[in-house]
Amino acid sequence: MALALSPALRDALARWLAQLAGVDGAAANTVTAYRSDVAGWLDFLSRHEGDTLGSARLAKLTQRDMRAWMAHERARGCVARSLARKLSAVKRFTRWLADREGFDPSAVLAARSPKFQRKLPRPLSEDAARDVIDQMASLPRQDWIAARDAAIATVLYGCGLRISEALGLTGADSPLPEILNIRGKGGKERIVPTLPVARAAVARYVALCPHPIAEAPGSALFRGHRGGPLNPRLVARAMERARLGLGLPATATPHAMRHSFATHLLAAGGDLRAIQELLGHASLSTTQAYTAVDTARLMYIYEKAHPRA
């Protein structure tokens, strides 16, 4: 996207993105999304003004300017959830720039985020989660690949890891220790205990794997067919085959195993703050979504047991 920006503003955007990646530890996908969101906003403003856009103009933005941009995005078909994400990125960049340029960013920061219905996590039942692991262990023709797929599913469900975190484990994590140090989103570190069943599943995979994991502690723990790091798309495909074989819905994805971990832990009486720490959520409000899932499940059971006349 060729933006009509002043050199100073173009440099500021580049420095902000570099800080997100280098200092704040934002993931590459996050930086890419922020670049796209803020660039789209700046592109609209430059077209709106019909001239090269600089920091001085951003300092004079009004609520009317922000409403015009949001209306423009909605007219392009941008849904409320996506627009809320774009606005969050715009506010973050503007706050950063205002701190350095010394202007008042109130007009941008006061812009109201559109309301939208947050999607609830879609966990599997406890039986379905176990069935998925068993199914993934039985489908591949090669024993070591079957053991690998089962180990990954067990780690996702037993430790509540994201797929990127599970595939980020290295040979140094074998044998799987009782406590894992996980670096999650934004470079945030957390401590995750591992269950004996997860340690056993990984140990079985390592014993069967034809590639030398123990001899390469810095290399990926989970390997592809040729020995390179396992592609997450292959995990998604293995999960898809398992859910189709079990007749589970399309929401039964690798990430659903993490949702299942949190939901089942909460249902068993787990503390919400502790679950937040285990999942690596920056905000408790993100973890609180699982309370809504648990409430919905209880209401479903109640209504089945006590049908209305």
Rank of each mutant, 00 (worst) to 15 (best):
N181P: 00
A75L: 13
A305P: 07
G247K: 09
L53A: 13
P212R: 04
L221D: 08
L221F: 12
L17K: 04
A250N: 03
Q135A: 12
V202K: 02
W41F: 15
Q142I: 00
V31E: 06
L109D: 06
Y300S: 09
R308P: 02
G186H: 04
L278S: 03
A33W: 00
L284W: 00
K115D: 02
A207F: 07
R10Y: 01
R64A: 15
D271K: 08
P254I: 07
I133T: 00
L279T: 01
T52M: 12
L156H: 04
Q142V: 05
G102D: 10
L3D: 08
A12S: 14
P193C: 14
N29M: 11
I133Q: 07
R67T: 12
L266D: 06
V132N: 01
F116A: 11
S106P: 01
A305C: 01
Y34Q: 06
R297E: 09
S82V: 01
R95E: 14
A39P: 02
G168S: 10
V293P: 12
M257S: 02
P249S: 13
I179P: 00
D173L: 11
M257P: 07
L230P: 08
V31R: 14
R35D: 09
A18R: 13
M136I: 05
N231Y: 03
A4Q: 14
L3N: 05
T287K: 05
A309H: 06
P217E: 02
A14E: 13
A309R: 06
R308I: 01
V155T: 15
V197D: 04
D99Q: 15
D134P: 00
A2Y: 04
G245Y: 00
L3Y: 01
C209V: 14
R10Q: 10
D173K: 09
A59S: 13
G102M: 08
I145V: 15
G186Q: 08
W69P: 03
A216L: 03
D104K: 05
D149Y: 06
A39R: 14
F116Y: 15
H211P: 10
K86W: 07
G280I: 09
V202D: 02
R199G: 03
M136V: 13
V155S: 02
R57E: 13
L120D: 06
H72S: 15
A151W: 04
P7W: 03
A262G: 12
I163D: 00
A84C: 13
E178V: 15
H225N: 07
L58D: 05
S219L: 12
P212G: 11
L195F: 08
A282W: 05
R199V: 02
M1I: 03
T32K: 11
L87P: 03
A59F: 03
G77Q: 03
